[in-house]
Amino acid sequence: SSGDLRKKAWIDVDSLNHDDPQAVSHYACAIFEYLREAELMRRANPDYLETQPEINSKMRSILVDWLVEVSEEYRMVPDTLYYAVNFLDRVLTLQRVSRSQLQLVGITCMWIAAKYEEIYPPNVSEFSYITDNTYSREQLVAMEEEVLRHLKYELTVPTAKTFLRRLLQVCSPDDQLHFVSNYLT
């Protein structure tokens, strides 16, 4: 029957990884059970752009593309970028932002994400510099406070990357699948 089939098709990837501490195999199931719940608690409203009079989806995608470039320029880990976009969407869900402030909100989210995730985050001057000094360090510091207030300091969120890393671990892909799936998320 299909039940039998499913049982057979199920490989316990964690039991294969018991000799690898990086796989944290003993905790993986409990962690992901929790993360799936946690994901639902701190999510942006998918329709938030309707509440933003000055911003449309085109602008958001230009901003996100630019953040991708920033993360490459400073060689940041992929998680930092995913965090930054999560923070950005959550802030935009809660706060009307003018067109001229959008990039400031974006780069500030990236700065917070870098401080949270990177071992050696770039400093505030580098984030100011990458905006062509459009925004000063003081503006970034002030915006950081506002962003953190909206996020209520809740930065520990699962992102698409969190789940993708796990899925790729489970299906042991070749390099091509690895890159394609990272690109799509």
Binding site: A38, W111, I112, K115, Y116, E118, I119, Y120, P121, N123, V124, R137, L140, V141, E144, E145, L148, K152, Y153, E154, L155, T156
Partner: peptide, 26 residues
């Protein structure tokens, strides 16, 4: 820590503080 620059108010909220708060809230 090694994972942060000196606690310098110019750098806004230090990364160790961001982590401590965000983790403890959970």
């Amino acid at each position: 820590g090694g994972e942060m620059r000196p606690d310098d108010s110019e750098e806004g909220v230090p990364s160790s503080a961001l982590r401590e708060i965000a983790l403890l809230l959970e």
